[in-house]
Design a protein around this nucleic acid. Structure first.
Lengths: 206, 206
DNA sequence: GTCTATAATTTGATAGAC
DNA sequence: GTCTATCAAATTATAGAC
């Protein structure tokens, strides 16, 4: 195997970290290349040396963010385990994944809002969007078996997604309104892993 | 009573409608005055004649949006009715209010994310932010009375807010991914008014 | 690879005629 | 009130030296 020339990535990594922060705070349009350069401790010219333009830089950041989110959700949705276990795993894993990058949901929903078709094209081309079909089927089967109450599978899916994702979208509001710090928010979300799963199962089980 | 000189509002209204659309799609920073002028069918100069600058125009749009949302949520949270009824009223009223302006949640959360302290100051100065204290107290009382299961009041509040608000944040994703049109989305949200309330009550009642 | 200096473009805002 | 023309400032992007 040929020896791979190890390009020095320290500057590129500094840029990506800085860009991530600025894009999260300001969004694609609000972000300023100067701010990214400042936060990376370099100048604008070097930014353009590494990434030809702003759009390309944003795409790298966005696909990187999407890449650490969607494939893992897909895995949960595609795992063939009993319904209750799938619910528990989704709450546990999803909240854990996002807790490491709480900005992700709002960031992603904004990009979808800006260009829904473009988003789906980008994601499907690169990694495939998580499909909840198996989850919906499992719900219908359990209803037919009579092990859970009659409920619209789509509504139940929305409930699950809502309760796992929404608190992260609302995080800035929760922090300022409930006067929480990062530690306290993290603790509430940790608690939520078990609470949401139990809340759902309590509601649907017969 | 003196006769009020009726200023012609048709142009101003066209501007406000156009600005709302552009700010929703692009956000405060992404919005272009030219785009707003185009959508209103006028030119930039006239835009500046009606609203001195972009920030002022955005503030009008934002406070208008907030004004049709927060006071009504306050009323629900402050109404002294039994817990289950409050849950039912919240689902019914909140989903109904937002259905008329589905863009509101994402719009508001973005502004909070951009400047949390500034947001609270603006809202509290103008109309007061909805306080869920009464709701939280009612939950604790019902737990003590033994009429509902033991549950963290904060987590239950988060569940309620999540399930009512999140689908609107995720609307662009739902439309493109589930291939829904506006009518179908509206129907699902209508169904949700009753479904979410029942889902919650089923989960907590003993 | 990294910088300084500057070009090129976009965009918010104003002046002044009608 | 509304427009055309233009300015001033901000911002992306490049040229060229080291």
């Amino acid at each position: 195997m040929a020896k791979v020339i190890q390009k020095d990535k320290s500057t590129e990594e500094k840029i990506l970290a800085a860009a991530k922060n600025v894009f999260i705070r300001q969004g694609m349009m609000g972000a300023r290349m100067q701010d990214i350069a400042d936060e990376a401790g370099i100048n604008k010219a070097l930014l353009h040396y590494y990434f030809r333009n702003k759009e390309q830089l944003f795409d790298v950041i966005f696909m990187q963010a999407a890449g650490q989110l969607f494939p893992r959700i897909r895995m949960i949705f595609e795992s063939d385990v009993p319904l209750f276990e799938m619910i528990e795993r989704f709450c546990e894993d999803y909240i854990e994944i996002i807790s490491a990058n709480t900005y992700l949901p709002l960031f992603v929903f904004n990009e979808i809002n800006r260009d829904p078709a473009g988003f789906m094209k980008k994601i499907n081309g690169a990694m495939g969007f998580p499909k909840p079909e198996l989850f919906l089927q499992k719900i219908e089967k359990e209803i037919k078996k009579g092990t859970i109450k009659k409920i619209s599978p789509l509504q139940l899916l929305l409930n699950l997604l809502s309760m796992c994702i929404f608190p992260f979208v609302a995080k800035p509001l929760l922090l300022v309104n409930l006067q929480l710090d990062e530690m306290q928010f993290r603790a509430i979300m940790d608690q939520r892993k078990k609470d949401v799963a139990r809340f759902i199962i309590d509601s649907i089980k017969k």
